[in-house]
């Protein structure tokens, strides 16, 4: 039987928390996917050695305080405007690595114009898009991506598509634009999906370094608080309901 001090030697270390993550307590609900995505971005930044050259753009929404959790320089944008900020940061400092981190309300409702035009110009940035089909921070209102029939506080009887339209598949729209080089939809609800998401994020940052244009990584995530389910139940519900409408996998990969 090995002594614990022998086991914890640095040469035996096979996994540790990346130093790009801060020590701050996460403000996210237990069970939410944001924390996992943050960790993956932090790991990719550390592994690529780009901590000192990466600028993140935080949105309005649950992840408004994302800047508290990753040890990089950050700007926090007005609701929906992150792609406009990222555009200027990257154009003015082309040698830096720039990403926006946005939710569905931010990217696919109030910021639709900024999103589409940044992608259409082929801005050489990474856009990370968390799609949980609801406005989490403001208390569970209907999002542009809320599923048909799905209840939210501003559609308590379920989304009526004859009244509110169908949920928008923004990633499929953005994949149509010549400016995007990589559009993928992933999730972080199982270990296998976490690994795939990390690969997708890494590829997106590598695309930026290769000046290939806009990379969009959509992560379909649960919102157990907003959906009013336990974390486990919300992940099951996500598999059964979200994935058929928002199928996982690459939508565009050039």
């Amino acid at each position: 039987m090995s002594d614990i001090n022998t086991i914890i030697k640095p040469e035996n270390l096979i996994y540790k928390r990346t130093d790009v993550l801060s020590d701050n307590d996460l403000s996210y609900c237990p069970g939410c996917g944001h924390g996992t995505v943050h960790k993956l971005i932090a790991e990719v930044i550390e592994e690529m050695g780009i901590q000192d050259t990466t600028i993140g753009i935080a949105p309005v929404g649950c992840s408004v305080l994302a800047y508290n959790y990753l040890e990089i320089d950050w700007q926090q944008a007005a609701h929906g405007r992150a792609p406009a900020l990222a555009t200027a940061v990257k154009r003015l400092m082309p040698e830096k690595n720039v990403f926006s981190y946005q939710g569905d309300g931010d990217l696919a409702a109030i910021g639709t114009a900024e999103t589409i035009h940044a992608c259409n110009r082929g801005e050489n940035i990474v856009m990370i898009f968390i799609n949980n089909g609801i406005y989490g921070m403001t208390g569970g209102q209907m999002a542009p991506t809320t599923l048909p029939g799905m209840a939210a506080s501003t559609c308590p009887h379920g989304r009526d598509v004859s009244h509110d339209g169908e949920p928008i598949k923004i990633s499929e729209i953005l994949a149509q634009l010549p400016g995007t080089c990589y559009v993928t939809r992933q999730s972080v609800h199982t270990a296998a999906n976490v690994r795939k998401s990390k690969k997708a994020l890494r590829k997106a940052f590598e695309n930026q370094q290769a000046n290939k244009g806009t990379s969009l990584v959509e992560i379909v995530s649960n919102c157990n608080s907003g959906w009013k389910m336990t974390p486990i139940k919300s992940n099951e519900w996500m598999e059964e309901n979200m994935f058929p409408y928002y199928p996982l996998g690459d939508i565009k990969n050039q």
Partner: peptide, 13 residues
């Protein structure tokens, strides 16, 4: 709206 937010991004740098 976009141009003033591009200004924000640039100014932040």
């Amino acid at each position: 709206t976009a141009s003033i937010n591009m200004v924000y991004g640039g100014a932040g740098c």
